[in-house]
Design a protein around this nucleic acid. Structure first.
Length: 280
DNA sequence: ACTGATCCCTGCCAGC
DNA sequence: TGCTGGCAGGGATCAG
């Protein structure tokens, strides 16, 4: 399940693989993947027109914002969210695979496939600035790896929120790009109980939390992402961050610091694993 | 302002 | 062995 580090890894890979390439042909097998700026499926006629309009366009760049992949086609922007199981692959073998829903063929003969087992992922076709502003992507919060995201900034945000800290970290409108895996790892690093109210976090704790957010996300990127379920980058390589996980998915395991048994419970409607002794 | 339920969808696993 | 039902999962959205 791709979070910020995984999406960043994919964006960098795709930038190398497909930027500069011109779309010659598009094959769509499951059309609901394509959505308008509000996330709604298109009516058939409009969808056909929009997809046809992509032919001949050149991919100028592939970048990331929050957990979204952005394909800059000049006057059109493709905004893709991979959700749980979405993946882009430049491997020709993916073209005919089960669950491959969209295949782009470029003028140089190479291909890019969108494959998504659970079909939760989406590709929005954005044709103007007005549409872009309507996307949930544009409502994403601060980029946690940007310089603007300082410990002071985080502490101010925390003071204004009464939600539990896990829910706070998962809310994309606050901080963009953190999902369940990194939220659990960050809270373990910062030694904070996931159920604590955000506004109960002290300045000292906020500084540690801020460091945890930056470090865990950067570690994720440095190791090519965490391959938990099905995540692979655009070349099909797995990441290595899953080997560095300390609490996520470690139900029943023992804390690496105090050796007590880790606890798993639902917090903010997500499976949450933490150390009840170290995280207070 | 926040919480909880619902929806999207398939694979997987426990239980029969 | 084969079937079925329930669950997981990110996040938008809606009701309370």
């Amino acid at each position: 399940m791709p979070e910020l580090p995984e999406v960043e890894t994919i964006a960098r890979g795709l930038q190398n693989k497909v930027s500069g390439k011109t779309i010659q042909d598009i094959r769509v097998r499951y059309s609901k993947i394509f959505r308008d700026c509000c996330g709604q499926p298109y009516l058939e006629e409009e969808r056909k027109q929009l997809i046809a309009s992509l032919t001949g366009k050149t991919i100028k760049a592939v970048t990331r914002r929050a957990k979204y992949l952005l394909f800059d086609l000049g006057d059109i922007l493709l905004v893709s969210h991979l959700r749980m199981t979405g993946r882009f692959s430049s491997d020709p073998e993916y073209v005919d695979k089960k669950h491959t829903h969209v295949v782009l063929t470029f003028t140089d003969g190479s291909v890019l496939s969108y494959n998504d087992t659970r079909k939760f992922g989406t590709i929005q076709i954005i044709t103007c600035e007005e549409e872009r502003l309507k996307t949930t992507m544009s409502r994403s919060g601060i980029e946690p790896l940007s310089d603007a995201f300082s410990a002071d900034y985080l502490f101010d945000m925390l003071k204004q929120s009464k939600r539990n800290i896990k829910a706070f970290l998962l809310t994309q409108e606050s901080i963009a790009g953190i999902g369940n895996i990194y939220a659990d790892e960050i809270l373990f690093f910062a030694a904070i109980d996931p159920k604590r109210r955000a506004n109960s976090i002290s300045e000292e704790e906020a500084i540690k939390l801020h460091r945890g957010i930056k470090e865990k996300l950067m570690m994720g990127i440095a190791s090519g992402g965490a391959s938990i379920l099905t995540y692979v980058n655009e070349s099909g390589d797995k990441g290595a961050f899953q080997e560095l996980l300390q609490v996520y998915g470690k139900k029943g395991c023992h804390c690496q610091i105090c050796n007590q048994k880790l606890l798993t419970e639902t917090v903010a409607a997500r499976t949450t694993t933490y150390c009840p002794y170290c995280q207070t």
